[in-house]
Computed example of a mutant assay.
Amino acid sequence: MRREATDFAHVRHMRSENPKMRERDLAHMLELSEAEFIAAFCGHGVRRVDVRFDDIFKGLAEVGEVLALTRNESAVHEKPGVYDKFIPGKGAAMMLGEDIDMRMFPSVWKHGFAVEKPQDDGSVKKSLQFFDAHGDAVHKIHTRDATDMAAWDALVESLIAVDQDPGLLEDVTPREVHERVPADPARAPELRTRWQAMNDTHDFFGLLRDMKLHRLDALGMAGDELAWKLEADAVTAMMERASQSGLPIMCFVGSKGCIQIHTGPVSKIATMGPWINVMDPGFHLHLRTDHIVEVWAVRKPCEAGHVTSVEAYDANGDLIIQFFGKRKEGLDELVDWRGLVEGLPRAASSQPALEPA
């Protein structure tokens, strides 16, 4: 059910009164989801688009360089590049381009909008923005100076929905809160046995599902040879050391419907208040370090040995961000990355991890 038209006018008035505020922050102030906020502007610089997933990503290959943006509550991941090497899939789709590397879950993408935002210099900033059933942003695509605007406009026109009235076509649904059931410590031997038997890191998700374990409970039960807790500032230390050494890393940030990946070195690291930022030409990352409650180093077996990750979690136990060393499929990870993780500050309760046999 759509909100009353007077509400839409109020939302647009609030935008005009606060031109510098981010849409997400304004939506929060108005007690709206971001999707509801954007939908209030249909007919006023915003047009609803049909979320025809395969058509969107096949069409994007023709527009040239754009900016891909995926975020969650605590991290924003931005990559310029071309949407090429799209691999469709109903359950999961992939973008395997040199710069834009993503894993996407099409069923989560519910609302889409083409947004045009006039700038102070007279130009117009254009984007495609997608949201889930709860009204939270899944993924955004912004034009850049190098974008083929004719191809962009043609793609947008091909996606325009029939209904362009303000408001969402469906009400947002509250996100379910799942009570975390305490794990049974007696299951730790089974967990370790199954964990050590993995030969593909992706098997970890199935292991958690089969054993009905929260990710953090599994890390705590695994033993220090497989997972050990780090100090809360270990992510900052890792990023700074990677920057100083030039070590290429992989950085994963996910919304509920998209995981975006950077692979390569990070150079310009800047701290601003609670945020730590990567400000390189080919990669921007903005991470709220004050949201990080737990950090873990995690080892998962693979065909070539094992893969080590650094994982940060928030107060709800949700994964904020993951880091790996750059690695080609089928090969063992970089020795320098492994050494960097081994040298990160450990939490007082975590013992030195043993090198697997």
Rank of each mutant, 00 (worst) to 15 (best):
L213Y: 08
W109I: 05
R52V: 12
H214Y: 11
A40P: 01
Q196W: 13
R47A: 13
A357G: 08
E311N: 01
L285C: 05
I38R: 03
V11K: 05
H134N: 10
D120L: 15
A304K: 12
E225D: 15
P106E: 01
A222L: 12
D318A: 09
L96S: 15
D163T: 07
V124R: 11
I100L: 03
V172G: 04
L60I: 15
I276C: 08
R3N: 15
T143N: 07
K126G: 07
W296L: 00
D336P: 03
V310G: 03
G91C: 07
D165N: 11
A40E: 09
T143W: 03
D165Y: 13
R2D: 00
L285F: 01
A222F: 06
V46L: 05
E36R: 05
L169Y: 09
A188D: 05
P106W: 03
I269H: 08
V11Q: 04
L69W: 06
D318L: 10
F105W: 10
K85R: 15
P356E: 11
R71D: 07
S267Q: 15
E231K: 13
K126E: 11
D121G: 06
L207H: 02
A35H: 01
I261M: 13
P281Q: 04
P106T: 04
A114R: 01
L319S: 11
E4S: 13
E73N: 12
K328W: 12
S350H: 06
E329V: 14
R215W: 00
H284P: 09
A40I: 09
M149E: 13
G206F: 01
R215F: 02
E329W: 09
E157V: 12
D165A: 14
M198D: 05
T143G: 14
I100G: 02
V76Y: 07
D84S: 09
S309P: 00
K79A: 14
M198Q: 07
F131H: 01
K125P: 01
P248L: 00
A75F: 06
I160F: 03
A61R: 10
L340A: 04
V307A: 01
D224T: 12
E62Y: 11
A61W: 02
A218R: 06
G81T: 09
K20I: 13
I320A: 02
D163F: 05
E329M: 10
K20F: 11
D171E: 13
G167L: 08
W275N: 01
E225Y: 10
K110M: 14
H111T: 07
S245N: 02
E116Q: 15
L159G: 02
P185F: 03
L354D: 12
R47T: 14
K125G: 12
D153C: 06
A114K: 04
E98A: 13
A146C: 13
M104A: 09
L230Y: 02
K58T: 14
K85Q: 15
E225G: 15
V181Y: 04
A357Q: 15
E17N: 10
V162C: 03
G273P: 00
A197I: 08
H10F: 15
L128I: 05
E333I: 11
H214R: 14
V253Q: 06
H262N: 01
G81D: 08
V162S: 12
V307S: 00
G257A: 00
